[in-house]
Simulated assay, not measured.
Amino acid sequence: MSLTTPARSRALAAGLLALVLTASTACAADEPGTTGGGSIKIGLLASLSGTYQSVGKEIRDGFELYLDTHDGKLGGRQVDLVVADEGNGAATAVPAATKLLKQDRVAALTGIVGGGSVAGVYPLLQETKVPLVGSNGRPEIKDVSRVWHTSYLSDEPGAAIAQHVRDNVKGSVYAIGPDYQGGWDELRGFTEAFAKAGGTLANPDGKTTFTPFPATTNFTPYFARIKASGAQAVYTFYAGSAAVDFVKQYAQSEIKDIPLYAAGFLTEGGVLNAQGEAARDIFSVLNYSPDLDNAENRGFVAAWKAKHDGSPTTYALASYDAAAVLDRAIGAAGDDPTPEAINAQIGKLGQIASPRGAWQFSTVTHSPVQKWYLRQVRQDGRALSNTVVGDLATIGR
């Protein structure tokens, strides 16, 4: 039996201490969102392929613009941004979100284009206890304790413009949109508010016409139905490539002289450039326009144009604001910005300065209480643009 020398004892103690420190560091690195060196991991899920690719890219670029203009940091911590492709809906969004939440172990999730994707990802948020700061429309969710949106609820655009349409259209209105969660919500918001305002739908049986999604690229048969209905105006929601197809075909159809009202996504961003002259005079409702005159918007638009062609969209704006929300919440979460701590601080933010104008989260829905604007596609210099022509309702509940 050999005895341990004092020198050997000190060496063993030092070795044990090193093992303890290594294990401690490894455990800390395993915490969701931590990547070492005081940085934080954020997941961004958006449609970078498929029908809504243009929307997804705007969401990604809006978030990245905030990082670019804030030294790549949120809450004073360097951000490791992990981007994943949502694709066309829940079937591709859920596995992408699973990787972000369970393998990459992000501290917070942002983005998400489709309402169906939000519904599909929702159980994962409940399981992993990671907050979502979404930046596009979403359906109604019963438990929003970890779900926040800097954009809107999907039924709000239609609800905001319904009274205006009722007041300015002398006759019935035909409602049409895509047959999926986002389309159902968007058109329900309009039709319910329009009925309350005393309006009448021209659709058969007074029910919205839904077109198969994403299969419908030829809308001509639907235009024939609209003409036969005797409608004096049309209200619709489409976005991405479907919006381009709808608007171009509408302008060449037998109903081209019937006024067209829409949720603003119909003519938002790059789709307006693709639609060109076919989009002229379309009225739309949205929570943002790049021509809003406030200091935050002037700075935002200037920063966007320094990096991108054209003007920023509501998608970019909402994602920029999502980064701003996370910036404040992570900073307020202290030395240990866990997902739970970040989520708790989001609920305490109060009013948020934004390029769209000041807004705050509803305590009931965790979506913005905000003003909505009436826009019309008009000539702006050498190009067509969505020009604000009036204020509509302030909505939030």
Rank of each mutant, 00 (worst) to 15 (best):
G177T: 11
G177V: 09
Q181R: 14
G182W: 10
G182V: 14
G183L: 11
D185L: 14
E186Q: 12
L187M: 15
R188V: 15
R188G: 08
G189R: 13
F190E: 10
K196E: 14
K196I: 12
K196Y: 02
G198I: 12
G198E: 07
G199M: 10
N203I: 07
P204H: 05
G206W: 03
T208K: 05
T208C: 00
F210N: 02
P212C: 02
P214K: 01
P214R: 00
P214S: 00
T217L: 10
T217M: 09
N218Q: 11
F219K: 05
F219Y: 12
F219H: 03
T220Q: 15
P221A: 03
Y222Q: 10
F223M: 11
I226P: 01
I226V: 06
K227V: 10
A228C: 08
A228N: 12
S229T: 10
S229F: 11
A231R: 11
Q232W: 08
A233S: 11
V234M: 04
Y235H: 13
F237Y: 15
F237W: 15
Y238N: 07
Y238I: 06
A239C: 10
A239W: 10
G240N: 04
A242G: 12
A243M: 02
D245N: 13
F246R: 08
V247L: 00
K248R: 13
Q249L: 03
S253M: 08
S253Y: 08
S253V: 09
I258V: 15
P259S: 06
L260I: 09
A263H: 14
F265H: 14
L266Q: 08
T267C: 07
E268R: 12
G269S: 05
G269L: 10
G270C: 07
N273H: 09
Q275D: 07
E277S: 07
A278E: 06
D281V: 10
I282W: 06
V285N: 06
V285S: 07
N287K: 14
Y288M: 09
S289K: 12
S289G: 15
P290R: 00
P290K: 00
D291E: 12
D291K: 13
D291T: 14
L292N: 03
L292K: 07
L292G: 07
L292D: 07
D293M: 04
A295D: 12
N297L: 01
G299E: 08
F300R: 03
F300P: 02
F300E: 02
F300T: 03
V301Q: 01
K307P: 00
